[in-house]
Design a protein around this nucleic acid. Structure first.
Length: 558
DNA sequence: ATGGGTCCT
DNA sequence: AGGACCC
């Protein structure tokens, strides 16, 4: 493959940074964005007080009493900020969005065009463009493929970038836990055969989750393919060499739009209807926003989650059969999208269609058995018709959506009130005494559930018979994997080794940053030769994608 | 976990 | 339709 130049740009503590901008909060103020009872992201002052992602809000406030909590269930402001960042990045090449806060950019063509004018630092310039457009800081990785760009981006954060030359690739990935490779999730990490080090050592390794890239490499392609299948095995083998041929796949308009809400319990159709009254207008608004760039016709999906929890101890999410019936944890059913779903009366039509689907699939509560116990309800629009033309990169005009945040500047008082009520609902503030949608403690919930006189034994709560109620087979419970923090500490340079050039802010430092972006001049943060395994030193790099751009690194770096 | 997404089977 | 993976 022709050598490429790829940037992975990651918006720093994204939801939190957006909220700090919207609310004009000072940089030193500890801030966390919450969804339900969880901190989903927080800024660095909060982190230094011990607040972490996915921590309970109660724990976070205990650790950091002056923490400012901001409810973030409504993703609208983040979606809009993400759209603006993406628009700014499109000047650098095809952009693939991952989540709302990460973007791969294939900057090969722009890099080639600018090469004649001397060194060009795509990471630096892309971050500057995003900052100009949105006010947001970001971190970036620059490399020859998506794998290395992604891994590099995590080496220096926030507000910094890291380049990873192809010559360093193989040695760089070797010590990483397999789990650190994008695409290797908890499941596949367990499937990969360990080095033959004897049963006891293997068991110990497995228990700590420390299977490394080097060990998987030693296992060989055939073993990896046996464990993961032909395609996934080949992909992993390549990743273990630091190689990744996957193209930057340009993101166009979304292929599906989902709105969902979770709660401790909904036991009745009345409760579900209450949730639908929130979700349906939300979906309608999203469809109306997107309608201009595509055909309006789509299929509507309704998804719900039953009571049950998927954990390491309970990987299948199996429920206690003595308390709750068996069956799949998540169920989805779809129906034709009601006509006019994106129009004025769309919300009512969507809600009615969704309710019909739910009624057809859930057994009505009866005194003789416990009712269904749902903990999540989602509405999606999928399979959009191509009527409007679904061109790649055909994002709706960002300018058209600017300032359209519900409840902000341009919105009517009614819209503001509706938006506020909606935020309250999603945050759970309105769900007090007597609400059919239940929010309560685990202990209370368990008591509530067990109070139902249930004579039905193994009855299914789904209508239209489930194949068999055999349930989940015993499953090999996986090891506890090292935390991201541990991964950082083990990599050649942890967060502690932050690049002084980024902090100094001088013109000299800025120049050093430009050089570091592509290359070798400022690369003291990359693995040094002495850290590179001897076996990896000799001529490995030609096996990786390694021609034009590496020479360019060398040229600019020396 | 939350509130989303994409791709593969 | 469900699962695995990503943020």
């Amino acid at each position: 493959m022709k050598a490429r130049a790829i940037v992975l740009l990651d918006l720093d503590y994204f939801y939190c940074q957006v909220e700090m901008l919207r609310n004009g909060l000072p940089a030193e103020r500890p801030v966390a964005v919450t969804q339900k009872f969880l901190v989903v992201t927080c800024n660095y002052p909060a982190r230094s007080s011990g607040v972490a992602k996915l921590m309970r809000t109660t724990e976070a406030v205990a650790r950091c009493p002056d923490l400012r909590l901001i409810a973030g269930e409504d993703l609208t402001p983040y979606r809009e900020a993400s759209d603006e960042a993406m628009q700014a990045l499109r000047a650098f090449g095809p952009v693939q969005r991952v989540g709302l806060d990460e973007f791969f950019i294939d900057v090969t063509a722009v890099a080639e065009a600018r090469a004649s004018a001397g060194a060009w630092a795509p990471g630096t310039h892309a971050r500057a463009a995003v900052r100009r457009a949105t006010g947001l800081t970001s971190s970036a990785g620059v490399a020859h493929n998506k794998l290395l760009a992604k891994l590099a981006a995590s080496l220096h954060k926030p507000d910094a970038q890291t380049a990873l030359p192809a010559s360093e690739a193989s040695a760089f990935v070797a010590p990483l836990p397999l789990r650190a490779l994008p695409g290797v999730g908890a499941r596949s990490a367990n499937c990969v055969p360990l080095r033959r080090v004897g049963a006891r050592a293997a068991a110990a390794l497995h228990a700590t989750g420390c299977t490394t890239v080097a060990e998987a490499r030693e296992a060989g392609l055939a073993a990896l393919q046996r464990a993961l299948g032909a395609a996934a095995g080949r992909r992993l083998a390549a990743q273990c060499e630091g190689a990744c041929a996957e193209p930057v796949k340009e993101s166009g308009p979304p292929l599906s739009v989902t709105v969902e809400d979770s709660f401790k319990a909904a036991h009745s159709v009345e409760a579900l209807r209450l949730v639908l009254q929130v979700l349906a207008p939300d979906l309608r608004r999203r469809l109306a926003d997107e309608a201009a760039s595509r055909g309006a016709s789509a299929v509507e999906g309704v998804r719900w989650r039953h009571h049950g929890t998927r954990t390491m101890q309970n990987p299948t999410g199996e429920r206690d059969a003595s308390v709750a019936p068996r069956g799949p944890l998540c169920v989805s059913r779809s129906c034709a999208m009601p006509s006019g779903a994106s129009g004025e009366r769309g919300a009512a039509a969507i809600a009615a269609a969704a309710e019909a689907v739910l009624r057809a699939n859930l057994r009505p509560p009866q005194p003789s058995r416990p009712p269904f116990h749902l903990t999540l309800l989602a509405l999606s629009a999928t399979k959009f018709a191509r009527a409007g033309g679904l061109q790649a990169g055909g994002l709706r005009d960002a300018a058209g959506s600017r300032g359209a945040i519900a409840g902000e500047k341009g919105a009517s008082p009614q819209a503001k009130q509706a938006a506020a009520a909606h935020r309250d609902f999603r945050s759970g503030y309105q769900l007090g005494q007597g609400s059919p949608v239940v929010l309560m403690s685990k202990a209370e919930e368990r008591r509530d559930w067990s109070e139902w006189a249930w004579e039905g034994g193994g009855e299914e709560e789904l209508c239209g018979g489930d194949e068999e109620a055999g349930g989940a087979e015993p499953h090999d419970v996986g090891p506890c994997f090292p935390s991201p923090r541990e991964l950082g500490a083990r990599s050649p340079s942890g967060e502690a080794g932050a690049n002084e050039a980024q902090e100094a802010g001088s013109a000299e430092a800025a120049e050093a940053a430009e050089a570091a972006d592509w290359g070798l001049a400022g690369r003291n943060h990359l693995p040094t030769r002495s850290e590179v395994a001897p076996a990896a030193r000799g001529g490995r790099e030609s096996a990786i994608e390694d021609t034009a751009t590496t020479r360019e690194c060398r040229r600019h770096g020396s």
